[in-house]
Design a protein around this nucleic acid. Structure first.
Length: 948
RNA sequence: UUUUCCAUGGCUCAGUGGGUAGAGCAAUCGGCUUAUAACCGAUCGGUCGCGGGUUCGAAUCCCGCUGGAAAAGCCA
């Protein structure tokens, strides 16, 4: 028996079936870096229309987690797909470097009381280390970008420009000074962040204090309770508090607008308390009471009481925060020392300058405070209780154990304290008129495009409801607000604008450390004695929120010093996790609106967070975390990329071992399809073997036509950032269109026709185009694999798929007709396969080539099927396919109207070469084992083929 | 608690202006041994989170509930 196997043109390729991704990816990355691929892409794209994705800077602390990976991979897919689509799409990664988490790291490592400049120096070095670690991991994901020239918010130039931005905003009139309650530690002499607050048990006084009703408002109170008049004698609103030291700062009383309040007659006078608590209160005060009436809290609005020992009013301001857990249902309000107190008093129109702030930064009352001046608040506590007793308004005093805020450094109790801060006003009219910041920002949202659409609503709500932006922080590792404030008035120095620029210049040379080194005398001369140098820093959100100016250069165009590439303003896209509606999307919008009156981006894309397979968020305590480094080293970054792309990022992204397993399977399917394509193109040289499409077989034209349709729709999906649809389509394309249909049918022709026959070259010609199209379509997602494919056929040594654009497939005449015609045939083919399956199940055939079919067709199906001639059997992959009119009892009606299928095992001998069962096997005496067409393909002119 | 969003077969996703659900993968069974730790075929599988309502008719519109995610920090 002659071995005909080596007369076949079997597939051959160095492209391995297994990707071995984890091991081989680092090699590709190294090549990209060595050959300066990113720079070469920039050169190749020069002059094209720009697409600028401005990178939202990750925080330079900690190794990257899966959320970082998602974000960077999505950005990479966007940038690469825009590049393939013919844009010049630079990507300059950035890092956010200032801020408390780093400050805390430094404190943990080096102790808690180091000088500011030292902290800054250490923080700077620490941030650089972190950036290095993160950069390595980001690069490992296959993300292409200018990794050698990233932007950092701690770059001197960036720090300096940020001070300049601040100066601009001040000049434009958006920035003002005002009060705000913050967590305050007397030992630190500074505000604390939530992360620096610890809770410990502490015993305090718990006192009930009566606020006497103002004589002028006796009528009003009576009226609120529907009484003609109040009983004779004093009347009190009784409050309960655990902080007697706040009593001197009391300026209001809060009740809940919805609660019922009772007026109770007792031997100590008429008392106002919450109805629900009155019994408990009377018991505590050892009083008998007679209810006089009841009223909603809202009705008590603005009724005036008097401070127990100072000569001033304290009015009732209803507020939702009041509860009935403890106390009397009436809360005393010291706006300088409580957040709720502050907001309610402000809501009732209290001005900052009216708010009493007797407690100084060191915890002592100011000297001018009557009775308690100069005392620390803790020392004053019992004296205040005594004073209340003395004036006769103390109803009860006890001790109370509760969990109280303490400083994590000093373990000492801390308080809320209203301090002077700098704000960006949402509703101020800027100098020179124009819309307020809120108006400008809301208008900017209207003209921004959101992916997905709901982001618009979300950002809108936040901007519409947010309070003024507190710009100042009492922190060390941050960009200074280099102000000098007058010792008496607190007003900034009249030459502030000029001073800011002087400081900016120094910071540009020496970094923010320069502000520590500069003295008031240097900048103010003889004025220095009257001014205090501010220790405030800018909110870190201001750092990243102004990168459109400090990095991108704003509307006046690019600067080369930080970003290494020219850019444009506004950016085409900001792409971040959904939390950034409150974060970077938000802060960038505000800064840009103040600076330029509009958003710094044309569109926003947002993605959800990672959750595990059951939809729960990842946490170390749940033990359901998956880290990108591990996926990269076990399965390959390509798998992570494919997972990101395949998942609908508009909601949460689920990941688990099973999900990754499915992704690996999908990957293998696509990879093997590519392998088959490459293997069958091994001997094809497009420059020599290409044929005009008119000379191909019909199925080849159809294949290129459906590839064209796929390509168009995928390009559109990329344009809409619907990457999971892209993956879905690519996978289905490989499985259905190619694997189960075109390639399956093509095997016979590729393997058995003459190597250089027109029939075979036509097939390869089509495959060549399909492979080009497919490789580029997958490249933004499966970058490593696409590059691997590219390396096999690239002519130029340093070529890369990323130096090209979407493939231009040849025009196929009558593509629409072909699609329609073959879709129809494929439906019939499917029903044939069902028939073959029953034969197979019956043991009558194995391979479909062991069968012959007759299709009984009526109506227009008859000429339709006949139109494929003898090639129909190749489409059906049977050894014989006849078309007949009418019907026969043996034929089974198919799912297609007017077509019945009769399938039988072939009785012909099997050709050992092509495996078809044909009557003409042995027709040539010199080749007794093979069929006629094999003889023709081997020795003659080759078989004629027209359709498939 | 408030705001925004999500919930379709084991997994990932489709489902167009409402007309009683589709695909790929997996699973099961079978075939091939010329893509071979690959490939082909067939089969199985969903009361579209739950409960109401609108409608002749709802996965699709409305309300409520449950579960989940993000935000409401001198956290990024």
């Amino acid at each position: 028996m002659t071995d005909y196997k080596n007369t076949l043109n079997l597939p051959d390729t160095p492209f391995p079936m297994r990707g071995d991704l984890a091991k081989r990816e680092p090699g590709w990355i190294e090549q990209w870096q060595q050959k300066k691929l990113y720079q070469r892409i920039r050169a190749a794209c020069a002059g094209r229309p720009k697409f600028v994705l401005h990178d939202g800077p990750p925080y330079a602390n900690g190794d990257i987690h899966i959320g970082h990976a998602i974000n960077k991979i999505l950005k990479d897919i966007v940038v690469k797909s825009k590049t393939l689509a013919g844009f010049d799409a630079p990507y300059v990664p950035g890092w956010d470097c200032h801020g408390m988490p780093i400050e805390i790291q430094i404190e943990k490592k080096h102790g808690k009381n180091i000088p500011v400049e030292q902290t800054q120096k250490l923080a700077r070095a620490y941030a650089d280390e972190q950036i290095e670690r993160q950069r390595k991991d980001f690069i490992r994901l296959g993300v292409l970008g200018d990794w050698d020239h990233p932007y950092k918010t701690m770059a001197f130039r960036n720090e300096a420009d940020e001070i300049r931005v601040l100066g601009k905003l001040l000049e434009k009139g958006y920035v003002y000074r005002g009060l705000k309650p913050v967590n305050w530690c007397f030992d630190c002499g500074s505000a604390l962040a939530e992360a620096e607050v610890e809770y410990q048990d502490r015993e305090d006084f718990a006192i009930d204090v009566g606020f006497p009703l103002a004589d002028e408002d006796r009528g009003k109170l009576a009226q609120a309770f529907g009484l003609p008049k109040l009983p004779e004698g004093p009347a009190y609103a009784v409050i309960w508090t655990t902080t007697p030291w706040t009593i001197p700062s009391n300026q209001a009383l809060n009740v809940h607008p919805e609660f019922d309040y009772a007026l109770v007659a007792t031997e100590r006078g008429t008392l106002l308390v919450a109805a629900e608590l009155s019994a408990a209160c009377l018991a505590r005060w050892a009083l008998q009471g007679k209810p006089l009436g009841s009223s909603k809290g809202q009705a008590l609005e603005r009724i005036r009481f008097r401070h127990p020992f100072y000569d001033r009013y304290s009015s009732i301001y209803p507020g939702d925060y009041v509860t009935l857990d403890q106390g009397t249902g009436i809360v005393h309000s010291a706006p300088a020392y409580g957040v709720d107190d502050y907001t309610i008093c402000k809501r009732y129109g209290m001005k900052d300058e009216e708010i009493l702030t007797p407690v100084q930064g060191d915890g002592r009352f100011g000297a001018s405070l009557e009775f308690f001046g100069g005392l620390s608040i803790w020392k004053a506590n019992p004296l205040i209780v005594d004073k209340l007793k003395e004036v006769g308004t103390l109803f009860h005093a006890g001790k109370f154990m509760h969990s109280y805020m303490h400083c994590w450094r000093h373990r000492s109790p801390i308080i809320y304290r209203a301090t002077t801060q700098w704000f960006a006003g949402m509703d101020r009219k800027p100098n020179g008129g124009g819309p307020t910041l809120r108006e400008a920002a809301l208008a900017a949202i209207e003209v921004t495009q959101f992916f997905p659409g709901w982001g618009k609503q979300r950002l809108h709500n936040m901007i519409a409801n947010r309070p003024d932006w507190t710009l100042s922080r009492q922190r060390q590792w941050g960009v200074p607000m280099p102000f000098f404030q007058h010792k008496e008035t607190g007003e900034p120095h009249p030459r502030t604008a000029e001073i800011l620029e002087q400081v900016a210049q120094r910071v540009e040379r020496e970094g923010i450390e320069a502000w520590q080194r500069v003295s008031a005398e240097e900048l103010l001369g003889t004025d220095a004695a009257n001014y205090v140098k501010s220790k405030d820093t800018l909110d870190v959100w201001f750092d990243s929120g102004s990168t459109h100016q400090t990095v991108m250069g704003g509307p006046n165009g690019a600067k080369e010093s930080i970003g290494s590439h020219p850019t444009q303003f506004p950016a085409d896209l900001y792409l971040e996790g959904s939390d950034q509606h409150r974060g970077w999307f938000h802060s960038s919008l505000l800064v840009s609106c103040m600076l330029h009156g509009g958003a710094p981006y044309r569109s926003l894309l947002t993605h959800g967070f990672v959750v595990d397979g059951t939809g729960r968020k990842m946490s170390k305590s749940l033990g359901n975390t998956i880290v990108p480094q591990e996926v990269s080293s076990k399965l390959g970054a390509e798998i992570l990329r494919l997972w990101v792309a395949a998942t609908d990022y508009s909601a949460e992204l689920g990941i688990s071992d099973e999900i990754l397993k499915r992704v690996v399977e999908a990957y293998r399917r696509i990879r093997n399809t590519l392998r088959f394509l490459l293997a069958n193109l091994a001997d094809y040289d497009h420059t020599q073997h290409a044929l005009p499409a008119a000379q191909w077989l019909e199925i080849d034209r159809y294949a290129v036509a459906f590839t064209q349709a796929l390509q168009e729709s995928v390009i559109e999906d990329y344009r809409r950032y619907d990457f999971h649809i892209v993956v879905q389509k690519l996978q289905q394309f490989c499985s259905e269109e190619l694997g189960a249909f075109y390639l399956d049918i093509l095997k016979d022709r590729l393997y058995t026709s003459g190597e250089n026959s027109k029939a075979r070259r036509a097939a390869q010609n089509a495959l060549h185009h399909i492979t080009h199209s497919l490789t580029r379509l997958m490249a933004p997602i499966m970058s490593f694999t696409a590059e691997e494919v590219w390396s096999i056929w690239r002519a130029v040594p340093d070529d890369s798929v990323f130096l090209h654009t979407w493939y231009v497939l040849p025009e196929i005449d009558g593509a629409a007709g072909l699609q329609e015609r073959w879709t129809r045939l494929r439906a019939i083919r499917a029903s044939v396969q069902k028939q073959l399956e029953t034969l197979r199940a019956d043991g009558q055939i194995g391979s479909s080539l062991a069968a012959e079919v007759t299709l009984y067709a009526n109506g227009e199906q008859l000429p339709f099927l006949q139109s494929f001639g003898d090639d129909l059997r190749f489409v059906l992959i049977t050894s014989q396919a006849r078309v007949a009119s009418g019907s026969t009892p043996q034929a089974i009606p198919s799912e297609v109207a007017d077509v019945a299928v009769q399938a039988t095992p072939s009785e012909q001998p099997k050709c050992v070469r092509c495996w078809h069962y044909r009557a003409d096997v042995g027709g040539d005496a010199t080749h007794p084992e093979i069929c006629g067409r094999c003889v023709a393909n081997l020795c003659g002119d080759g078989e004629p083929r027209t359709y498939a």
